[in-house]
């Protein structure tokens, strides 16, 4: 019984680690899409940021420098996205797609050119990554207090700072979007940009601020993948996480709280898949690894195909703002 409990707690622990980049990206999506800009380039931005973080950490030895450059890289891509679809009123999906393709090719090319390891960056050592932070007395409490102890030791303690940051991002996103005047304008510009324009506020400037906030958060997500969760960059290491985050955001109806829950659900499926590999279940037998690995993606398709009810997106989403004559 205690063993099963521990297994469960370890799965939850893994859930948090896997869900972190999803949460950061989903919050990024909320900022961007609430302002009316579709952002499928979460994937590409995260990939580029992951590459930048791992490269800089490998060269300088500092994960913080890696994080900084990852954020700058992601911001640059956000500006590119904004330039294409805010300044020049281009198609937002095409622009995002272009960034994803660019990131996919550029990371491998640069990786081979710089490190000559087939697109990977060098393995990062202990000081070059974000290490886990042990909370006080974690070992003692984990060992001496039944049930509650392991929760404290495994789930609450022992995460790196970026995991904490992801959860803080949810609260901050909620506060900014729903409890500040900036958030009121942000939501207005995604629903009815004319209202913002006639109030004498620049629609473009509001939307640029929103995509830059999205860039900031995806930058952190990328750095997490390569310098906290992993120990270096691997080609295509985002593996569709940007899209899953987007799905979670839609599933959560563009609200931070529900989007967080959706991210945790996807994270849980992922963690479960990892834990069930090679395990023989009663009655079912050994579960197919391929099926389990595909589970989060299958869930995404199923949920988006109709199980989420009517998700009403911001009204002006995807529509470039053109002043009416």
């Amino acid at each position: 019984m205690a063993d099963l409990w521990l297994q469960f707690i370890l799965t939850i622990d893994a859930t948090l680690r896997v869900a972190t980049p999803l949460i950061l990206c989903a919050m990024a999506g909320i900022f961007s899409e609430r302002a009316g800009i579709i952002d499928i380039s979460l994937e590409g931005k995260m990939l580029m940021a992951a590459f930048a973080a791992a490269s800089v950490a490998a060269v300088t030895g500092s994960p913080w420098a890696g994080l900084g450059v990852a954020i700058l890289t992601s911001l640059a891509l956000s500006l590119l996205h904004g330039f294409a679809c805010i300044t020049h009123k281009g198609n937002q999906v095409i622009s995002g797609l272009a960034i994803n393709i660019l990131a996919s090719g550029l990371t491998v090319t640069l990786g081979i050119a710089i490190f000559a390891r087939g697109g990977q960056t060098p393995l990062l050592g202990k000081g070059e990554r974000f290490g886990s932070l042990q909370l006080p007395f974690a070992d003692w409490i984990g060992a001496h207090i039944p049930f509650i102890g392991p929760i404290y030791k495994e789930i609450i303690s022992g995460h790196n700072i970026l995991v904490w940051l992801a959860f803080a991002a949810v609260a901050i996103t909620y506060y900014v979007v729903f409890k500040t005047s900036f958030g009121l304008r942000l939501r207005a510009v995604g629903e009815k940009p004319e209202a913002i324009d006639s109030a004498g506020i620049s629609v473009s400037s509001m939307r640029f601020q929103a995509v830059l906030l999205a860039g900031l958060l995806t930058g952190i997500a990328g750095a997490y993948l390569s310098t906290a969760h992993g120990a270096g960059f691997i080609r295509e290491m985002t593996a569709g996480k940007g899209y899953i985050a987007l799905a979670a955001m839609i599933f959560g109806k563009w609200r931070p709280g529900p989007a967080l829950l959706a991210c945790l659900m996807f994270g849980f499926l992922d963690a479960l898949a990892a834990r069930l590999q090679g395990v023989s279940l009663p009655y079912i037998g050994e579960v197919s690894t391929d099926l389990i690995l595909a589970l989060p993606y299958i869930m995404t398709v199923v949920l988006l195909a109709g199980f989420i009810g009517t998700a009403t997106p911001p009204k002006a989403i995807g529509v470039p703002y053109v002043k009416e004559r």
Binding site: T180, R185, E191
Partner: peptide
């Protein structure tokens, strides 16, 4: 054609862009 955000309340629509404080 009205310049109102349909899912905002009258109050939110009126203060939009002319909010007195940083917090809502």
């Amino acid at each position: 054609h009205f310049m109102l955000v349909p899912n905002f309340t009258a109050l939110e629509n009126v203060i939009l862009g002319y909010e007195a404080e940083v917090t809502l």
